[in-house]
Amino acid sequence: MCKAVRYFAPLTSTVTLTKVLKSLVSKILIFRLKQLWRLFKQVGFARIVLLAIIIAGFLVFELHDLISGDYLLAVLIYPLIILPIHLLRKDQGFLRKLDCSKESILAGEYHSLALPYSIYLVYFQQWSTIIIGHLLITIIPLLPSIKVEKRYRANNQFVKWIPVNLFEWRSYFRQRKFFLFICLVLAGLFSAYAIAIPIAILILVASFSEAFTHIESKELIESYPKNSNFLRSKLKDHSIFIHLLFLPFYALFLLFHLELWYILVLLLVIIECSICFCLLFKYSWFGYAQSEIHNQIPFVIFFISTVLFFPVGIAFLYFYWKKAIKALPVYVKN
């Protein structure tokens, strides 16, 4: 109750516009914009434009059809986007330290985030949707967030069969063992349906970028068993590993759907390209200051480009191959 009173207090008091602009909430919002700008710079403006085109395409061709016939869905899009962000955000400790109501800051951020969608709805004159949506957003900051504590458990017996030099996969398997297990088991169980294995593999491949978000230290690159042709060795070792992992599923697919062999060929190409992209993108960022990279957006763009317009994907690979060779240490002969 006390929390709610504190939260709504600024709305009931007479606060001038200048005061609001000078407030901590506006400072935080400006800070968030700066963060977004830095993220854009890191991801690359060309990729952001490409992503914006994909999103705009979705908005124009799909979203309107989706929401125009369903009022409830149009309203629910507000909490469906904001609620996961609120529940999983990790900066609540930092916000608590600030000399301002944490809920006001959160509300400021969430309303700003929802603004593009509201503007989109203004175009279709869905006024009641906008009002109810923003009312729902106003309540969200009062909800407690979920404390996600990373659990570090090393003793997963199944990672022992992954060679130690494929540490990216060891790391990924330790983090995502349940997700992998469920995907693979479901794919196996429903392998009689032609769609099951390709979908499971595509979902897994789409998640693989997560295994390559960290760049190892120079010492680890130097110590790679066959570093006389470092990049080629890496690509080869990772490809072999991933195809061995999927081998039972390739076999199951051929067993049940031999007539659809060309789907499997397409899948193999997508898997191969995706692994190459993840590795090449990672090493293209090699440098001291960079230990973690934001590869999700570039990977999504690459993945969609490869699936829909294959040659674009190949162009991406060539570009990052060149970039990775340039970024890696000279003595790692490529």
Binding site: A154, N165, F167, E168, S171, Y172, Q175, L220, S223
Partner: peptide, 12 residues
């Protein structure tokens, strides 16, 4: 590298 054991690091 995240989720890497000390032994694995030294081994590499």
């Amino acid at each position: 590298y995240p989720y890497m054991k000390g032994a694995e690091y030294i081994d590499l």
